[in-house]
């Protein structure tokens, strides 16, 4: 009896997720009257705006990931090594982006860094891009931090650090040659989540007026019928591709060499 209920719940959940997806996919294939075709996809992929915004977002994602790694890995490492008692508070701070709406963050940015402020980042394109990258990094912080922190838990940070120090290594060597390689899998899974977030993000990019993929999707959705469905399927595919990569990377991860202790 319990078994049947469990299966029923699973079936319901599956339908709940899959039906709209199937409907959308089916719709995206119906651009040509009467037959299924990939016309909508061809149209989308051929659109120079698509290529522009998509590559812009991918580049932004790459920078966001690099920035996130530089910010999060040393921070999480330092907290584990020197401030273990501060861990819950740091974790709380990293969760704040989940409760503060992106629109609040971006308005804050615009107020703080507008052209008449002490640091007029919004005055130039590069400045605005940097600001947007900070915004993206903030949005991905909860995932990035969690992933890296979990990765650090699998190694004995304190002892490895001391071993490296006694062998003459400084902080840069320790972080670059020992800590980062050992949490690389965790970092990569954080990176894929970041990629997925950046590709789909709308609010920040729109308000900072940058040609990102999110606003493009929105624009297309407001003006066309079939293409947005095709685009949604593509975006969905990218996201799931990222998820798959996370799984793959996690499976290829080397085993920890020392007994895991926390």
């Amino acid at each position: 009896m319990k078994r049947i209920a469990a299966w029923a719940a699973l079936a319901f959940g599956t339908l709940y997720f899959l039906l709209p997806l199937m409907g959308m996919t089916e719709f995206s294939l119906k651009m040509r009257r009467g037959v299924y075709s990939l016309d909508a996809y061809a149209r989308v992929l051929a659109d120079p705006k698509f290529q522009e915004t998509f590559s812009y977002s991918v580049i932004m994602a790459v920078f966001t990931i690099l920035f996130g790694i530089l910010l999060v890995v040393p921070t999480a490492y330092w907290v584990r090594l020197k401030l273990p008692r501060a861990r819950p508070y740091v974790e709380f701070v990293t969760l704040l982006p989940l409760v503060i709406p992106a629109i609040v963050v971006v308005f804050g940015y615009i107020r703080l860094y507008n052209t008449s402020s002490w640091l007029p980042l919004t005055g130039t394109v590069t400045g605005t891009n940097i600001l947007l990258m900070f915004g993206y990094a903030t949005l991905s912080l909860p995932y990035m931090y969690r992933a890296v922190d979990t990765g650090l838990r699998t190694i004995d940070v304190t002892t490895l650090t001391e071993a490296a120090q006694s062998l003459g290594a400084g902080w840069v060597t320790i972080l670059g040659r020992l800590i980062l390689p050992n949490v690389l899998v965790a970092v990569l899974s954080g990176a894929f989540v970041t990629l997925a977030i950046v590709i789909g993000e709308f609010t920040m990019a729109a308000l900072l007026n940058r040609p990102a993929f999110g606003p493009y999707m929105q624009l297309l959705g407001a003006n066309r019928a079939y293409e947005p469905a095709a685009l949604a399927v593509i975006a969905f595919g990218i996201t799931w591709g990222c998820m798959g990569l996370i799984q793959l990377v996690a499976r290829l991860a080397p085993k920890p060499a020392i007994p895991v202790k926390d």
Partner: peptide
């Protein structure tokens, strides 16, 4: 890192990577 001292730990502490 400046002492040139060799240290061996109970938990081995080999670098896993």
């Amino acid at each position: 890192s400046q002492r040139n001292i060799g240290m061996v730990f109970q938990s081995y502490a080999l670098f896993p990577n």
